[in-house]
């Protein structure tokens, strides 16, 4: 009996794998060569993950700019921020033959091959938010200067703590995520300038709020002098806020979040977070479309564009509401 059950189970697992593989496998390189048709006014935006206000705001900026220039922009989004889910989308977009693609690669190496297929088919590629290590693929890369964002976070945190002393912690997402790694790096370099703050290093949260909460409460146990946490993205920030509230340390331990999605703006308003480092995703989208169109129409493009980051605190947030991310356009 158990043997049979096992066979069934293994068979089922194999079948599932096959089904998934079949769904995931685009046809490689068949639509290559020849370039795209003239007067092709189609653009596709491939974001890093579905339904993040950051990418929604970027889409809003991109759509507005595309419309203004007489282009038509469609958007494709993977369910999770994962190369294995984004790659099939890229190869799928390849077969729709847009003139240009704006993409936020979810891995700085793994996406190189599918993106090269795009350029091989004559499609102009612009990187938005994140970028490949191989700089020969995209015509232009528009992103926030994440390292500068990390510096800004360190400065903001130091200002919030003031003259006090204590330890500070960084919550990173997954090891190998270039943007959050850069934020953590910038933070680490800058925080060294404040001798009253002891840097505890970074903890990974796998982008799960529950794990972020566990990391923060463990850090509180180990370091009762914890005075500050820099959460490098939304989910780690939410987990940290929950954990601090649970420990009755809300406000006592200063929490600096990254990004300004509506939930985070709410948290800032009601004191769950003390500061946010906001990017400017709408401008990234706008500039991404401008560069893509320039590339398509043979006009000069700028290889690298860095957009501004800004620190929001409860006091000055109302005057900077244009930096809040959107849930819909």
């Amino acid at each position: 009996m158990p043997l049979n059950k096992n066979v069934v189970r293994i068979g089922a697992a194999v079948a599932a794998t096959l089904v998934l593989a079949a769904c995931g496998g685009g046809k490689i390189g068949e639509s290559g060569g020849g370039g795209t048709a003239p007067n092709n006014k189609k653009l596709t935006l491939i974001t890093g993950v579905k339904a993040e206000p950051f990418y929604i705001s970027m889409r809003c900026g991109a759509e507005a700019e595309a419309k203004k220039s007489g282009y038509e922009l469609s958007t494709q989004e993977p369910d999770k921020f994962e190369a294995s889910l984004q790659s099939p989308i890229v190869t799928g977009v390849l077969s729709t033959k847009p003139a240009g693609v704006l993409i936020a690669p979810t891995d700085n190496k793994a996406l190189a091959a599918p993106m090269k297929q795009l350029t091989g088919a004559g499609i102009r590629v612009v990187e938005v938010d994140t970028a490949l290590e191989d700089r020969s693929v995209a015509q232009s890369s528009i992103s926030s200067n994440n390292e500068q964002g990390g510096q800004l976070a360190a400065q903001t945190l130091a200002k919030l703590v003031g003259t006090g002393t204590g330890s500070v912690l960084v919550l990173n997402t997954k090891a190998g995520t270039s943007t959050t790694d850069a934020r953590a790096k910038g933070f680490e370099a800058e925080i060294a300038k404040y001798p009253n703050l002891k840097y505890l290093g970074q903890q990974y949260t796998d982008n799960e709020p529950a794990i972020a909460a566990q990391r923060v409460s463990a850090a509180l146990s180990a370091n009762p002098d914890l005075v500050g946490v820099f959460a490098t993205n939304l989910n780690s920030g939410e987990g940290a806020a929950t954990s601090l509230r649970n420990a009755n340390k809300q406000g006592a331990v200063k929490l600096v979040g990254f990004d300004a999605s509506p939930k985070q703006v709410d948290d800032l308003r009601n004191g769950g977070v003390q500061a946010l480092i906001a990017q400017d995703p709408a401008t990234i989208g706008t500039k991404g479309v401008q560069q893509a169109i320039a590339a398509i129409e043979g006009k000069p493009v700028t290889r690298d564009i860095a957009t501004d980051l800004v620190a929001l605190t409860k006091e000055d947030m109302q005057s900077k509401s244009q930096y809040f991310y959107k849930q819909s356009c």
Binding site: V49, A51, E52, K80, D206, N207, E208, P209, A210, A213, N235, E238, G239, T242, N246, K263
Partner: peptide
């Protein structure tokens, strides 16, 4: 109740 949000992007594991 705990996180104050639906944490759609979490819970995958």
């Amino acid at each position: 109740a705990y996180f104050g949000t639906t944490t759609i992007s979490g819970h995958s594991t």
